[in-house]
Write a protein that binds this DNA or RNA. Structure first.
Length: 863
RNA sequence: GGAAGUUUAGCUCAGCUGGUUAGAGCAUCUCCUUUACACGGAGAGGGCCAGGGGUUCGAAUCCCUUAACUUCCACCA
């Protein structure tokens, strides 16, 4: 058949235009027609990327995995909803936009809230467009007609609705609490937005002198002297005999000369430090609790930007760390510094700005998590539970359910969902409203919500909830959620409790967690290391198919994956192999070839063998895809392609095509065609571009592989024919091995002699002789010296070096003897025969038998 | 301080519910341009499956333990 496939595979040429063809063909659209609606549904969403920048290789991995599932399910006959979305990423985006504005010499306060938001939306539009281009370049089969944004109108309503519902139930409340304050962004953060790092610090020991008796003092240590302006007490453990005598006495705060009461509280660890600690209720979560128990004052001593406030005397206006230094110097000067110890301690940093978090007392909004988590917990202990892949992540998730604390949801930012709580300017009445209230009369809370408050609603709100439930009716809950294990707490957990609370069920049936992408040395990718990989760059150099294959065909579920140049190179070699094999098959098919039913009865043993390997591949592929083990599925595919199809059958088929009659040739064409089209169907989810392109060259192709479905296993293949194929493979391997070990070039001519039946000889000889470069091939009636045996076939290669051959055979005999001894031992073991799986025992028997037979033949030849 | 993961060939990793002689890719070495592919093909070398116990007829696989590394969680001043 004449084909216009290029001799060399060019990914750019292959990949261009296909995404549009699929989109225009409606292949990505969920429920596109009556017929689609009759199919079972399958749904998943893209974890919304932040509109802060370009997608990185981690996104590519995540999205590729999702897309492979989506395409696979379509081939398996599902109507798939694969919904795209992006996240406004409150803090991250605001930080970027602020940075940009600063670069222009402005600050956000000059622009004002409205002006700033305008700039933020411009930013969003720009980055959303770029993310869009990347999605398309990655070949994602997203239903773009249903794209969502976490700050779009529908989401605005969903968020207000959810807030009000939780507020009305008392599950959202406002309170003064110690929260994590990011002094750079000047906003509160939730606990999980704080990263704890071990950093070097100092432990300062100060004298707190007894009021009225300056010679008596208590030694108190602190790591944060600047907070001493907020101290309202000294605390010791009530069981600690050392300090009981000072109960109710007061000690002088060396920072400001104020007297502090000495109080007793169980919290203090007698073994730690000096046994006495200072209590700063407004700047430390534990001190806050102590302060509450003892009704202490709770003065805040810092401004929102972490400079000291007016309570700090001459230090007012100073940065917290400058103040620390100055204050320590002053205390030392007044003779109250005892010592400074260098220590390493664990300090919270802002995930976004990396600034040191200031625990800070202020009024914020919180979600009461306990009842919400308990509801999820109940479902996770019932049959309706969500399954985790790999299962160990269910434990991680469970830990969150067990330990989660109230979630601080208010952020002192502008970019985000405004808190729907209003105060009547006249009456001071506070109202939570789903719809905006008249700004003339009501003043809205200035804060916005944590980004995750909205993304937690994704599974149902992206489907139109609460306004239009039609999409949700068909596609909710999601069949699978694929994401990185690093956002189990951030996102998966929140979707879970929102889903359970608002829809009564878990929002996804399966959760598949994958690892992080690291560089070839296993290091995390980061800007500072400069080891990041741009998916666009990979696509430009190797093509999208190669990138997808590299990202999906290796690694195990839930484990981090190291990716480097060599992985992409290897992947592109695989794709190239597909191209060449296909080109060959298509060139062999006769002009006007029409696909037809396989005639199994007349099929040659080689073809039958290939189909048996194909069956194995289909089953292995399917089994692994169904449990989200794409790497394993890909392994089946590449093994089949490389070893069985290209390595063996394509070569064998050349001989068959040269020797067979017309009917025989036709059967080979059928096999080639069938194997290739099945291969393309299975490859399609992984490498959609090349498989679709090649498919379009196949005779009798449909308009897309999407229409071709999934290959079926062929039943009823003759075991005898399959066995002959295996035998052929072994024989060829033997001759090649023989040559290599005897220093003969692979294409060196040799003489071969077979001892087998006439029929077997006629079938095997032409094939073996071609791949062995045999000068002549004969059949003998009896075993001959120097003969090697394969099951019931003997093979004699004319040995240039008789000694080497004899040695080879001697080795073989030794091997056989030890194998026979081992089998005999096992079979003599009553326990083995009695307890082992009968199939295993049977196999062992067969093996023993054939080994004995082979050994007997060598013996009969005098070896 | 808790919890999870990892430890298999020089490197990066597979090995699913225990069952022949533990695999792949890359790298190394030998050889081969045979009309799909040198981005190819044929072969070779290389592993006490981290150490130690245990369960079992049988363990890389299950259990216990030790060690190293990684990650997550955690309010010890």
């Amino acid at each position: 058949m004449k084909i216009d496939m290029d001799k060399n595979y060019d990914p750019k040429k292959v990949e261009s235009g296909l995404e549009n063809k699929w989109i225009e063909g409606g292949y990505f659209k969920a429920g596109k027609d009556e017929e689609a609606l009759k199919k079972p549904r399958f749904s998943l969403i893209v974890p919304p990327p932040n509109v802060t920048g370009k997608l990185h290789i981690g996104h590519a991995k995540d999205n590729t995995e999702q897309d492979i599932i989506a395409r696979y399910k379509r081939l398996r006959g599902y109507d798939v909803l694969f919904l795209p979305a992006m996240d406004h990423a409150g803090i991250a985006t605001q930080a970027k936009v602020e940075e940009k504005i600063r670069a222009e010499g402005l600050d956000k306060y000059q622009l004002g809230r409205e002006g700033f938001l305008k700039r933020a939306w411009e930013w969003k539009d720009e980055y959303a467009a770029s993310i869009h281009r990347q999605w398309e370049a990655m070949g994602l089969s997203l239903d773009f007609s249903r794209e969502r944004f976490t700050l779009d109108d529908g989401m605005q309503h969903a968020v207000a609705h959810v807030f009000k519902a939780l507020y009305d139930k008392g599950l959202i409340y406002q309170a003064d609490r110690i929260i994590n304050w990011d002094p750079v962004l000047r906003t509160a953060l939730s606990n999980i937005e704080v990263v704890h790092k071990d950093i070097p610090g100092k432990f300062y020991y100060f004298k707190y002198r007894l009021e009225g008796d300056p010679e008596t003092y208590l030694t108190v240590a602190t790591t944060r002297p600047e907070t001493m302006f907020g101290d309202t007490a000294l605390v010791y453990n009530p069981k600690d005999e050392r300090f009981k005598k000072y109960a109710n006495r007061r000690f002088i705060n060396p920072a400001n000369g104020q007297p502090l009461p000495l109080i007793a509280d169980r919290y203090v660890d007698m073994e730690f430090g000096t046994g006495v600690m200072k209590c700063t209720p407004a700047h430390d979560p534990n001190d806050f609790l102590i302060g509450q128990r003892h009704h202490l004052d709770m003065p805040v001593v810092m401004n929102p930007d972490a400079t000291m406030n007016e309570l700090c005397g001459k230090y007012a206006g100073m940065d917290r760390f400058a103040c620390r230094e100055a204050l320590v110097a002053a205390i030392e000067a007044q003779g109250d510094l005892i010592k400074i110890e260098n220590i390493t301690h664990n300090v919270g940093h802002s995930e976004r700005t990396d600034s040191i978090i200031e625990p800070y007392l202020c009024k914020q909004w919180f979600v009461r998590m306990k009842p919400l988590a308990e509801a999820v917990d109940r479902i996770q202990h019932s049959r309706a539970r969500t399954r985790f892949f790999p299962p160990r992540f269910a434990k991680t998730f469970q830990r969150w359910l067990d330990t989660t604390e109230d979630w601080c949801i208010s952020r002192q930012l502008w970019w985000g969902h405004r808190i729907p709580v209003y105060t009547d300017r006249q009456t001071g009445e506070v109202i939570c409203s789903e719809t905006p209230l008249d700004p003339a009369r009501y003043e809205q809370d200035p804060d916005v919500l944590d980004t995750w408050f909205s993304s937690g609603l994704a599974p149902f709100a992206f489907m139109g909830w609460p306004d239009d439930l039609s999409l949700m009716k068909r596609y909710y809950p999601l069949d699978v959620m694929v994401t990185g294990y690093d956002i189990i707490f951030f996102w998966v957990a929140r979707m879970a409790f929102d889903g359970v609370h608002f829809t009564g069920e878990m929002p996804f049936k399966d959760v598949v967690l994958h690892g992080l992408i690291r560089d070839s040395q296993g290091r995390k990718m980061s800007k500072s290391l400069g080891n990041g990989i741009d998916p666009f760059d990979v696509i430009n150099r190797y093509g999208c198919d190669a990138m997808r294959w590299a990202l999906s065909s290796q690694g195990a579920p839930g484990l981090d994956l190291n990716i480097g140049e060599s992985n992409f190179k290897t992947a592109s070699e695989f794709v190239n192999k597909v191209w060449n094999a296909s080109r060959y098959v298509l060139s062999q098919l006769p002009e006007g070839y029409e696909p037809r039913e396989l005639n199994l009865a007349n099929l040659s043993f080689a073809s039958t063998w290939l189909l048996s390997r194909l069956n194995r591949c289909i089953l292995g592929y399917q089994r692994n895809m169904d449990k989200y083990e794409q790497g394993q599925a890909a392994k089946y595919l590449s093994d089949f392609l490389w070893d069985d199809f290209c390595g063996s059958y394509l070569e064998w088929s050349k001989v068959e095509l040269a020797n067979a009659d017309e009917a025989g040739k036709a059967l080979v064409y059928d096999t080639l065609y069938h194997a290739l089209s099945s291969l393309l169907q299975m490859l399609f989810p992984f490498c959609p571009f090349i498989s679709e392109t090649i498919y379009s060259y196949l005779p009798g192709h449909l308009s897309s592989l999407f229409d071709a479905g999934f290959p079926k296993v062929i039943p009823g293949l003759s075991p005898a024919k399959i066995a002959r194929g295996t035998k052929l493979r072994d024989m060829i391997a033997y001759v090649r091995n023989f040559k290599s070990e005897n220093g003969l070039a692979p294409n060196e001519s040799v003489d071969l002699v077979f001892k087998c039946t006439r029929a077997e000889f006629d079938q095997l000889a032409p094939l073996v002789s071609r791949f062995a470069f045999a000068r002549k091939v004969d059949r003998v009636a009896a075993d001959a010296p120097g003969m090697r045996f394969f099951l019931n076939v003997g093979l004699l290669v004319d040995a240039a070096d008789k000694e080497a051959l004899a040695k080879k055979i001697a080795e073989r005999i030794e091997k056989l003897e030890s194998e026979i001894a081992r089998s005999e031992r096992m079979l003599a073991n009553e326990n083995f025969v009695k307890r082992a799986n009968p199939k295993v025992v049977e196999n062992e028997r067969k093996k023993l038998e054939s080994n004995r037979a082979e050994l007997a033949r060598y013996r009969s030849l005098g070896h």
